[in-house]
Design a protein around this nucleic acid. Structure first.
Lengths: 208, 208
DNA sequence: TAGATTGTTAATCGATTAACAATC
DNA sequence: TAGATTGTTAATCGATTAACAATC
């Protein structure tokens, strides 16, 4: 594994490769080739091999790739084998849907708490076992439980100050669903955005 | 506007420009420059100007750009000025969160109905005014109301067959939240993916 | 062995960055 | 006018595609 400084496009394809490989495994396929993967990815055999070459020699000439081996390798690179704890900020509709629907464990995360500022929500659970705490007690909680990452499912305006608070108390990995460009001083901080509105506008563009 | 065949990276930045411009307008800023926009976008003045040059001459030397003019121009390019109707497939947690939270109207869409296969949900409303119909009646409904686009908030396995049905009856623009690579024969069909799991894995990658 | 398929190198393509003349 | 800032051209950089020798 010569996994130093991967190009961004490769990083973004990695989860997709992983998903395709799981699909193959679940339908009983034990080996595959760059050509077959390219088909699943709507890509080219050339690109698949070029991408994989970032990780050393994963295949065998004349044979192809072993599906489980790739899953294991990519799972490792993607960090799925360590469990990291995560908190959720903003227990509204979207936060609740994610807490209840999304399989954090499958991706190596464990959701340990939720936060909100609504008096009605504080003290209730967002899903069985995950309590909603007062956002005022965020720093206190982080100090004690040291979550590594946070999901931001709050409003556009609330997101920026909240992100700053999180980073300041050491939560530097942010999964941002808020409709905003977060700006953070801390150069260690990583923000991964899921912005519905950007996405629907791209669809909208293609409709015209 | 010489808006023929935009490069994909530009298309994906367009919604972000739009958001930054709205932000400026809402804080009372009337004119801006490539430098200021670059800062908001975490980009460079050069890239901003290069991007904008795809749309003709939007600015003025020595002055910069007029914020409202850009908003209007980009809104137009993004198709936000026409209203298109949309249906939602899969009225679970996520579908419900989107139906209730997401401001479709702001982006030029109107949500007109939801579909599900759960007998308990059928006949109820996903939000005031938006009824949940039996997925069996999808084709019938589409025939009558001709929605142009659909949001897919259903399970990984249900997504592919459902996408095929939609495309077959003429709904060719799909906003896909399901964790799958949709494969569609129809070359007119456009799929825009919002895959939470791909995104969390990218975050996960950076955490290792 | 012969056929298949990799890993890698080289060629092409496209996107970003830099520079600057045009001009408000 | 002088200063600011665009629009555009050219240079650089990086990603994708093609080709093929290596080898299982």
């Amino acid at each position: 594994m010569k996994n130093h400084k991967l190009p961004e496009p490769v990083i973004r394809r990695l989860p997709r490769y992983y998903r395709c490989l799981e699909l193959l495994r679940d339908s009983g396929v034990e080996r595959t080739s760059s050509g077959k993967l390219a088909e699943l990815m709507s890509s080219t055999a050339s690109q698949v091999r070029q991408d994989f070459s970032c990780f050393g020699k994963l295949g065998q000439q004349g044979y192809g790739y072993n599906v489980s081996k790739l899953i294991s390798e990519f799972g490792d690179i993607l960090g799925m084998k360590t469990v990291r704890s995560m908190i959720l900020i903003g227990a509204g509709h979207l936060g609740s849907a994610i807490a209840n629907n999304f399989d954090f464990e499958h991706y190596g995360f464990r959701l340990i708490a939720a936060f909100d500022n609504s008096k009605e929500l504080i003290g209730t659970v967002i899903r069985p076992g995950i309590e909603i705490y007062d956002i005022d007690r965020l720093e206190e909680f982080v100090e004690e439980y040291r979550p590594q990452a946070a999901v931001l499912t709050l409003t556009q305006t609330a997101a920026q100050p909240c992100a700053e608070r999180l980073v300041r108390c050491g939560v530097k990995y942010l999964w941002n669903f808020a409709n905003t460009e977060l700006k953070l001083e801390d150069t260690d901080a990583v923000v991964e955005d899921v912005r519905f509105s950007d996405s629907i506008l791209v669809l909208s563009y293609y409709m015209t």
